[in-house]
């Protein structure tokens, strides 16, 4: 709060009211509801529910399918995060290097930010079309009979590629703005100390970009866990079948389609704990950053 604040009593309450009301109804109520119903078993025909304690969680831990999906989610998250960060960093360093055409490159590399994930998935369906998709044909040219929606690994590959395509722009924007905020004096000093561009990158630029990188790491993990829902849903055309799926997609499939409210809520709670852990981790990183900068 500012020292020279206003002292009116009723006005701030009035100003806060809409925000508090909305989050009470659409944030706290559902969150509490999710935790609560994770301890209950819903009658499939809608005749009430019975308290089952931790059974829903025990079912999750014992379910081979859930463990398999969790494992796939982990792999998916690692791959998407690694490739979208790596590609974006490479492109940002190069875009920071060039002078001619810098603006055009920047625009060309960031517009995909505004494409909705399901639309990205839809475009993926075209690119990987079984009979004439350009990427299917490229795969065929190297002897890979790519079958989207039929072969588990092929579908997973397509999910990763589309998710990376969609995420590179965000990382690019942040890396580029991080690079451009490195002071000229530091760059010039580095130039004198280190003749090789590669050496300069690893010794000077990379450590200076590390805070941005850590921040983006969390953003990318969250993206791969949650925001890829639209991509996955369109790539499997809403029919999960034997296709790969992530934990969030499973929450949706079990709860909305399978009507297993208790199980789905338990899964929601597991994800909540996961996000909370990530956020705490992120806050600690930011705290440390403030010390250094």
């Amino acid at each position: 709060m500012k020292r020279a604040g206003f002292t009116t009593r009723w006005l701030p309450i009035l100003l806060l009211l809409p925000q508090l009301l909305i989050i009470a109804v659409f944030f706290y109520w559902p969150a509490v509801h999710a935790v609560q119903s994770s301890f209950f078993l819903q009658d499939p025909f809608g005749f009430g529910s019975s308290f089952v304690g931790l059974d829903n969680y025990r079912d999750l831990a014992g379910s081979g399918e859930y463990i398999k999906i969790a494992r796939f989610t982990l792999l998916f998250t690692v791959l998407v995060t690694f490739f979208s960060l790596g590609l974006a960093l490479l492109l940002a360093v190069k875009a920071d290097n060039v002078i001619r055409g810098a603006r055009s490159y920047r625009t060309l590399l960031m517009w995909v930010y505004a494409v909705a994930p399901p639309v990205a998935g839809f475009i993926g369906l075209l690119m990987f079309n079984q009979s004439w998709g350009p990427l299917t044909e490229m795969a065929r040219a190297i002897g890979w009979d790519f079958k989207l929606g039929v072969n588990f690994n092929d579908t997973a590959t397509a999910m990763v590629i589309v998710s990376v395509w969609k995420q590179v722009p965000v990382n690019f924007i942040f890396f580029l703005s991080g690079l451009q905020s490195i002071p000229k004096s530091v760059r010039e000093a580095a130039l004198i100390d280190n003749r090789s561009a590669v050496g300069r990158f690893w010794d000077v630029t990379f450590p200076l970009l590390a805070p941005t990188g850590f921040f983006l790491l969390i953003i990318n993990i969250t993206y791969a866990l949650f925001d890829t829902f639209g991509i996955i849903d369109t790539l499997v055309k809403g029919e999960p079948g034997n296709n790969p799926m992530t934990l969030v997609y499973k929450v949706y499939v079990d709860g909305f389609r399978g009507n297993d409210l208790g199980g789905s809520s338990a899964q929601s709670v597991v994800l909540m704990v996961l996000v909370l852990a990530l956020t705490v981790f992120q806050f600690r990183l930011i705290e440390r950053r403030i010390h250094y900068t």
Binding site: L20, A31, H33, V251, S265, V275, T279
Partner: peptide, 23 residues
């Protein structure tokens, strides 16, 4: 009020989607 509001940054809609739908 600050904590009440900023806790919402922690949980994306996706994890509380079903209860939100019920409400």
């Amino acid at each position: 009020a600050f904590w009440l509001i900023f806790t919402t940054l922690l949980l994306p809609l996706e994890v509380r989607i079903l209860p939100s739908y019920e409400i």
